[in-house]
C-alpha cells in the first residue's frame, strides 16, 4: 500500500508499538501483561510495518528468519527451567537474583521464560503473516 500518510506515520507507530510491547512484557511480572500479550503487540507492529513497506522490509528488520526468532524463544523458555538443576530444584523452579542494596526484582528465571514466550509469539505470528502476504 503506497499511501503517503501511512508511510510517514508507520515508523513512529511501529517503534512505539515495539517499545510498548517490551513494557507490557516486563510489566507482566507483577501486573497484568506478559510475554504473550507483549509478543502479540510487537507482531501487530510488524504487521503494520509490512502493510506499509512490504514483506521484504520486515524480513530485513527481523535480521534472522522469523522461525529462527521463535526457535530462540523456545530455547530461552526451555532452558530457563534447566537453571534450577544447578541449585538442586526440580525443572522450572523459579530463581531470583535479589541483591541487597538495589531494589530489583526482574532478574529471574520466570522473566527469561517470559522473554522466550515473547520471542516465540513474535516469530511465529510474523512467520504466518509473511507467509500469507508473500503468496499473493
Amino acid at each position: 500500500m503506497s499511501s503517503l500518510i501511512l508511510r510517514t506515520a508507520v515508523p513512529l507507530l511501529v517503534s512505539l508499538m515495539v517499545v510498548f510491547s517490551i513494557f507490557v512484557l516486563f510489566r507482566g511480572h507483577n501486573l497484568p501483561g506478559g510475554g504473550f500479550v507483549g509478543g502479540l503487540i510487537a507482531a501487530s507492529g510488524l504487521a503494520v510495518y509490512m502493510i506499509a513497506s512490504g514483506p521484504a522490509a520486515v524480513r530485513r528488520a527481523l535480521i534472522i528468519h522469523p522461525i529462527g526468532v521463535a526457535g530462540i524463544g523456545i530455547l530461552a523458555a526451555a532452558l530457563s527451567g534447566v537453571l534450577a538443576l544447578f541449585v538442586g530444584g526440580p525443572y522450572l523452579t523459579g530463581l531470583w537474583w535479589l541483591p541487597d542494596n538495589i531494589d530489583i526484582k526482574i532478574v529471574a528465571t520466570p522473566v527469561i521464560f517470559d522473554i522466550g514466550v515473547y520471542l516465540t509469539v513474535v516469530g511465529s505470528v510474523a512467520a504466518i503473516a509473511l507467509e500469507l502476504e508473500e503468496w499473493r
Binding site: 534472522i64 528468519h65 522461525i67 529462527g68 521463535a70 526457535g71 530455547l75 526451555a78 525443572y91
Partner: peptide, 14 residues
C-alpha cells in the same frame, strides 16, 4: 526437555 531444546535449536538453524 531435550526434545524441546532440540526443536528450538533446529529452528534457529532454519
Amino acid at each position: 526437555v531435550l526434545g524441546l531444546v532440540g526443536s528450538g535449536l533446529c529452528a534457529v538453524f532454519w
